Computed example of a mutant assay.
Amino acid sequence: MRFAITSKGNPESNALKQKMRTYLEDFELIYDEGKPDIVISVGGDGTLLYAFHRYSSRLDKTAFVGVHTGHLGFYADWVPSEIEKLVIAIAKTHYQVIEYPLLETIIRYRHGGKETRYLALNESTVKSLVGTFVMDIEIRGDHFERFRGDGLCISTPSGSTAYNKALGGAIIHPSLHAIQLTEIASINNRVFRTVGSPLILPDHHTVVLKPVKDFDFHVTIDHLTVMHRDVKSIQFRVADEKVRFARFRPFPFWKRVHDSFISDGTN
């Protein structure tokens, strides 16, 4: 088996990375940053997002597993005191693969040019560079509403616990192949109205945003922020690709939710 390790970069994470690499190589596993079968993320959720984007061209061949070295990571199953157990599990057992849906974002431009495509593990957001964000929203080719506000967030089920949750969106189990559209500070008064609730859309539905007056936007893809100019439309749907996580023991989704947001260590 070939493996790679990504680190948060702080001393604790770097030390754990080196220790795990040494242990796994002692078991005759091969360290290969180019074509790993499994990628171990040591840090937090941001570290795993970095690893996901680094290996996004190998999603059908590479599985991810996380070790958290700070606050509880939503994607991280293991803690530093368990790395010997994790190393033995990787070296000696056949892991279960859990697949989660991803978000596809396609940006098209008013005066032609090659469209831009992204994959997101958590979410994509769209905001204006200046002034009020005004966008027509189409669902399955039909006009749904004209949105005015600060922006829009489109999340995956696994990403529904991240920025989407802070915006008041629903938490969705990642076994559901869906995306969620959530408003960011919408303007609602006697003149302007939006639906005012998050929308959960199945994998055969497509959302298209079409600019009304401004055509330059900040678009985030997980932890990445990119400015796009002269935008004609931004399309979102459930991607054909999936992310694969290596599971060596049960860690149910709702336990993750409980441990991340409810548990104080006493219940």
Score class of each variant (00 low, 15 high):
Phe3Ala: 08
Glu12Ile: 12
Ser13Glu: 07
Lys17Pro: 00
Arg21Ala: 14
Asp32Val: 03
Asp32Tyr: 13
Ile40Lys: 09
Ser41Glu: 00
Val42Glu: 08
Asp45Met: 06
Asp45Trp: 09
Arg54Asn: 02
Tyr55Gln: 04
Tyr55Ile: 03
Ser56Thr: 04
Ser56Asp: 09
Ser56Ala: 13
Asp60His: 06
Ala63Met: 06
His68Asn: 15
Gly73Gln: 11
Tyr75Val: 02
Ala76Ser: 13
Ile83Cys: 08
Glu84Leu: 06
Glu84Pro: 00
Leu86Arg: 13
Ala91Thr: 10
Tyr95Gln: 12
Gln96Arg: 15
Glu99Thr: 14
Leu102Asn: 12
Ile106Cys: 13
Arg117Asp: 02
Glu123Tyr: 06
Val126Arg: 02
Val126Ser: 09
Leu129His: 07
Gly131Pro: 09
Val134Gly: 05
Met135Ile: 15
Glu138Ser: 05
Ile139Ala: 02
Arg140Thr: 06
Gly141Glu: 08
His143Leu: 15
Gly151Trp: 10
Ala166Glu: 04
Ile171Trp: 11
Ser186Thr: 00
Asn189Lys: 04
Val191Trp: 06
Val191Arg: 12
Val191Gln: 11
Ile200His: 03
Thr206Met: 03
Leu209His: 09
Leu209Ile: 05
Pro211Trp: 07
Asp216Glu: 09
Phe217Gln: 10
His218Asp: 12
His223Cys: 05
Leu224Lys: 14
Val226Asp: 07
Met227Ser: 02
Lys232Gln: 14
Ser233Met: 05
Arg237Leu: 10
Lys242Ala: 10
Arg244Asp: 09
Phe245Ala: 09
Arg249Leu: 06
Pro252Leu: 13
Lys255Asp: 06
Phe261His: 10
Ile262Gly: 04
Gly265Thr: 05
Thr266Cys: 01
Asn267Ala: 10
Asn267Val: 11
